[in-house]
Amino acid sequence: MSDQSYLSLEKLTLAYGDSVAVADLDLSVRRGELIALLGPSGCGKTTTMRAIAGLLPVKSGNVILDGEDMTRTAPNKRAVGLVFQSYALFPHLSVYENVAFGLRLKGMKGAELDSKVQSGIASVGLAKFADRKPAELSGGQQQRVALARSMVMEPKVLLLDEPLSNLDARLRLEMRTELQRVQRETGVTMIFVTHDQAEALSLADRIVVMKNGAIEQIGTPEDIYNRPTSSFVADFVGFENIFALEGGGLKTDNGSVPLSVAPGLEAPSAAGLAWRPRMVTLGTGPFRGTVRGTSFAGHSREYLLDSALGPIKAEVDASEPVHVSGSDLSFDLPVHKAAQLSRIA
């Protein structure tokens, strides 16, 4: 087993009946890595997690964990933990018994069991609540019980399916830190699903962006945020001005518009280019546009321009001179700042 691929998904194809939900997915996760699975609703995140846990049979491909082929291993023999979005706590058992459940099944008892359970509960800050039933806890507390219940089992991989989506903004932030702390202290390999790009960017070592049952891009948060490789990921992380390249120019509804490439730089060979509103320069440049709308956002001001390129979104510091609606101005899309896209959807 190489450290590079503690958990490997190889050409994983998953289906519900005849409808394929995830196709030919390849992913290698290092030991101790924190991976975020990011993507729109229905792209196959939960499906992938369930297959890693063994709850969903694999149609084809393999799941390799710690050097062992787990593809056909029963879910109760995999040492994979899963924290459900719904928590899935056992309603008839106390917090203590919920956390003790898996350890008892391993045959642990007496003082050893007690100390493990107690420290598990304490590590998520719920020592006072050990005797409560799940129904007597808040959402965030239930979430932490679910986390402790999985963590005391010392799983090889811990999967978390939208662990934070049921919490309010403040608790989310708290739980984010909590997750990070648990991950650092235990070094457990974690994969968590999220809809929220800010969450993925702030927590993960690497982000896997999924779309329609396939991986769109894998990379560090910096890669994903600054160097999206497809129009889908670019749009997802806020590059709102996206253009395909055609004959060395930007493709628009009215044909190709030549690019302004600064002297000494090569014309890009990518399939497309994308700019954040922040990257658009106003006041100078080869293009002309008319201000269609503007809005003040505190530290900055946002503009919507009508141009030969189509609508352009720009954002400049609030201290810059104001352009009123209807005024004509020149602008630039600096090529050296643009994200180079290899795929345009």
């Binding site: 709850l55 994979v80 459900f84 719904s86 899935a88 459940f101 898996g102 099944l105 219940r149 999985s150």
Partner: peptide, 17 residues
């Protein structure tokens, strides 16, 4: 909810268990 059964299985229980 049926997910508590899956949770039990992932904690080491058999389906019947």
């Amino acid at each position: 909810r049926s997910d508590i059964e899956e949770a039990a299985v992932l904690l080491g229980s058999s389906r019947l268990g």
